[in-house]
């Protein structure tokens, strides 16, 4: 019977149960993913980002907060133009990392 109300799921990220397999695998071949300072340069310059929610710095966070599916969905907007890699002040090879995530 539907009473018209329901329980909302918790919005908390439960860090104790986050699966970091993908992130840790990536880290092995791309140790520079740890060095992101979330400046947002990648997102601001992103060609796809002008029309979609594409944001590389958020993708990195999603992988570390148990939102791998969302991250992979977001990556589909990427056109691999590589502008993000040009602007990153930490010199992170973003284009390669994006390719590695989907691999």
């Amino acid at each position: 019977m539907d009473f018209g109300f329901c329980l909302s799921p918790s919005s908390h990220v439960k860090m104790d149960s986050v699966d970091l397999t993908t992130f840790n695998r990536l880290k092995e071949t791309n140790p520079d993913i740890n060095t992101c300072i979330a400046c947002g340069s990648c997102t601001a310059t992103c060609t796809a980002g002008h029309f979609t929610e594409m944001s590389f710095r958020r993708i990195l966070l999603m992988l570390q907060r148990g939102k791998e599916d969302e991250a992979k969905k977001m990556i589909q907007h990427c056109m691999l133009c590589g502008k993000c890699t040009l602007v990153c002040p930490r010199g992170i090879n973003i284009r390669k990392i994006l390719l590695d995530i989907t691999r």
């Binding site: 990220v13 860090m15 104790d16 979330a38 958020r58 907060r65």
Partner: peptide, 10 residues
């Protein structure tokens, strides 16, 4: 996590 925009528990 203000960069992610979600509260977290640990």
């Amino acid at each position: 996590d203000t960069l992610f925009g979600k509260p977290l528990k640990m």
